[in-house]
Simulated scan of single mutants.
Amino acid sequence: MDNNFTTADFIRSKKDRRKITVLTAYDYPTAKILDEAGIDCILVGDSLGMVVLGYQDTTKVTMEDMIHHIKAVVRGTRHAMVVGDMPFTSYHTGVGDSVRNAARLVMEGGCRAVKLEGGEEFKDEIRAITRAGIPVMGHLGYTPQSINIFGGHKVQGKTIEGARKIIRDALAVQEAGAFAVVLECIPMKLAAFISEKLSIPTIGIGSGMECDGQVIVTHDAVGLFRDFSPKHVKKYANVGDLIEQSAKDYINDVQSKLFPTTGNSFKIDDEVIDIIRREF
């Protein structure tokens, strides 16, 4: 890696009012493309459970899944900071397990920071992980690992008590040592207030333009899933349509004997094939 984007660049970007750009990746070729495009940070999210592995939610993702995909992304990255998600239950069973699992993502996976969901209730874990020399990105608002508690995908912080809790959580995460915090699906004005209140940058997803940076799932942004388009996503391409049409063209070419052509094939000397024919 060279010319790396770092945690210091996160803080500096907030001070300079430069928006931080984050996208997800779960494999080598996607990471390489995003990195070459100049993205600041690549998040290897546990969203891979849904967009890559086909699970209904993120709670099925394991440490082994995360390490496997983080490794692939790191191989394709030279500039962007790679952040790896701590999956469900990897930091819920105490400080010791939290530090061990965070260390695995960094040492075995190769990412340079970890992300974990939750606020005040996990401040001890955040503090211990950062004390071990591993940068932590927080995640508040709608937290996908808590889908069974929320009862579905719902905007958080719309009530007075809900807003107060997210603010308290944001301050606790900052105080515990996080270098940034994702704010997912909270009202735009609340996200703006929190962004103003914190000294660490906020990374929004469905939380409006006043956050210090933005993150979306790349598969959503490029239209890989045509039957699902979240409200908070801007679709920049329709890759799903392109892949389907390419597959149809391939099927047609093979069945019509238009592919492969001699240009796609390799040659052998005629005398070699003649000898082979005589022998067999």
Results as ranks from 00 to 15, higher is better:
205 I>M: 15
112 R>N: 08
232 H>L: 01
21 T>C: 07
51 V>D: 01
30 T>I: 10
250 Y>N: 11
86 M>R: 11
44 V>E: 07
21 T>W: 04
233 V>F: 03
50 M>L: 10
275 I>Y: 06
239 V>T: 14
109 G>I: 03
146 S>E: 09
247 A>R: 15
73 V>Q: 05
233 V>N: 06
104 R>E: 01
59 T>N: 14
143 T>G: 07
25 A>E: 00
238 N>Q: 12
43 L>M: 09
99 V>N: 01
204 G>L: 06
71 K>Y: 05
255 Q>K: 15
278 R>V: 10
217 V>S: 00
117 E>A: 11
189 K>I: 08
153 H>F: 15
29 P>H: 09
172 A>M: 03
268 I>F: 14
275 I>N: 04
280 F>W: 05
149 I>A: 13
185 C>P: 00
5 F>R: 08
214 Q>A: 11
49 G>D: 02
191 A>Y: 06
83 V>F: 04
224 L>I: 04
183 L>K: 01
151 G>Q: 05
187 P>N: 04
70 I>R: 12
37 A>N: 10
74 V>W: 04
212 D>K: 00
66 M>F: 09
256 S>A: 15
147 I>W: 03
159 T>W: 02
179 F>Y: 14
83 V>G: 07
228 F>A: 09
100 R>G: 00
164 R>Q: 06
86 M>S: 09
250 Y>C: 14
279 E>L: 15
235 K>H: 08
126 I>C: 07
251 I>R: 15
205 I>Q: 10
256 S>G: 13
90 S>T: 13
131 R>Y: 12
272 V>R: 10
56 Q>A: 15
46 D>P: 08
266 F>W: 13
52 V>Q: 09
171 L>S: 06
180 A>F: 06
105 L>N: 07
113 A>M: 00
70 I>M: 04
141 G>H: 09
130 T>W: 00
91 Y>H: 14
174 Q>D: 06
238 N>A: 15
220 D>K: 14
69 H>R: 12
280 F>T: 10
278 R>H: 14
154 K>I: 09
188 M>F: 12
150 F>A: 13
244 E>T: 13
8 A>L: 09
171 L>C: 12
16 D>T: 10
198 L>Q: 03
265 S>Y: 04
79 H>Q: 05
186 I>R: 00
273 I>H: 03
231 K>S: 11
36 E>N: 13
207 S>T: 13
227 D>F: 06
274 D>E: 11
2 D>A: 14
194 I>L: 08
167 I>V: 15
216 I>V: 12
149 I>M: 13
260 P>F: 07
153 H>G: 02
159 T>Q: 05
6 T>A: 07
54 G>C: 01
165 K>I: 11
151 G>I: 11
140 L>N: 07
250 Y>P: 05
218 T>E: 01
176 A>L: 02
145 Q>S: 14
42 I>E: 04
250 Y>R: 12
145 Q>W: 08
188 M>H: 15
258 L>E: 12
11 I>M: 04
37 A>E: 06
60 K>F: 07
81 M>F: 10
84 G>Y: 01
239 V>I: 15
53 L>N: 11
124 D>M: 11
3 N>W: 03
201 P>V: 11
244 E>L: 11
58 T>K: 11
1 M>R: 10
251 I>K: 15
46 D>K: 05
219 H>C: 06
186 I>W: 06
110 G>E: 05
101 N>F: 06
138 G>A: 09
67 I>C: 02
14 K>T: 07
234 K>F: 11
263 G>R: 14
177 G>L: 00
230 P>D: 02
169 D>N: 13
